[in-house]
């Protein structure tokens, strides 16, 4: 069961990547950034999985590196879709400073749970900011028809779902049992929602 979710989570980015492959050229810059985020997630999952099975060593350094790159891309993505892009850059700054501190103090072979929790909280804040922005705009469009709506929902669900896991990662890291299921489920849901968003973008185009 756990393995099923693990493989499901690893392979779930393939759905949005497949849609992306069909029409990458027609995407706007924001969607291209999102495609890179999904691609990076896939590479990181496959890389961690392969590295662990090949060497048997800890993959936390891969997780930390991936999360650092992912953070930069995600906050950059939000800076593109939000009117107040400085908020996004400011939040990115916070995470980078925290990451730097953790890298210096505990190193890359320990998972940076607090940094990831903070990142999740801030991304959730950006998602709410996006909804507020849509709410205040005068354009009369049905949200479900816009690609960004599904993409932002994907972000908010994933970050909300994995927030507690990263927060308590130091407690459960030695014996995760079913806890990782939540992350896998969140990742699958996130990628399905991203795929839906990209599909909507295809319909719009």
């Amino acid at each position: 069961m756990t393995k099923l979710f693990l493989y499901g989570s690893i392979s779930s980015p393939l759905i949005p990547l497949f849609i992306m492959g069909l029409m990458f050229r027609s995407f706007n810059f924001n969607l291209k950034v999102l495609s890179v985020i999904i691609g990076l997630s896939f590479l990181s999952d496959v890389g961690s999985f392969g590295y662990y099975h090949l060497t048997g060593h800890s993959t936390y350094w891969i997780v930390n590196t991936y999360n650092l790159l992912d953070t930069i891309l995600v906050f950059f993505f939000f800076s593109r879709i939000l009117n107040h892009r400085l908020v996004s850059y400011f939040m990115l700054g916070i995470i980078l400073v925290m990451s730097g501190y953790y890298c210096y103090s505990v190193g890359v072979h320990v998972i940076w749970g607090e940094v990831l929790s903070m990142k999740n909280i801030l991304v959730m804040g950006l998602c709410v900011l996006y909804f507020l922005q849509v709410f205040q705009s005068d354009t009369e469009i049905f949200l479900e028809n816009t690609p960004l709506f599904w993409i932002v929902i994907g972000f908010i669900f994933y970050t909300a779902g994995s927030f507690f896991l990263w927060l308590m990662s130091s407690e459960i890291v030695n014996n995760p049992k079913y806890s990782m299921l939540i992350v896998h489920l969140g990742n699958i849901l996130k990628n399905i929602l991203f795929a839906l968003g990209l599909w909507k973008a295809r319909v719009v185009n």
Partner: peptide
């Protein structure tokens, strides 16, 4: 720890779902 994790995550997801649904 797992109980807190599951309950916390469920609560968080419920909150997020409510917010999204309300906005929509």
């Amino acid at each position: 720890v797992e109980m807190v994790l599951i309950l916390g995550t469920s609560g968080m997801l419920f909150l997020v779902t409510s917010i999204v649904l309300f906005i929509y």
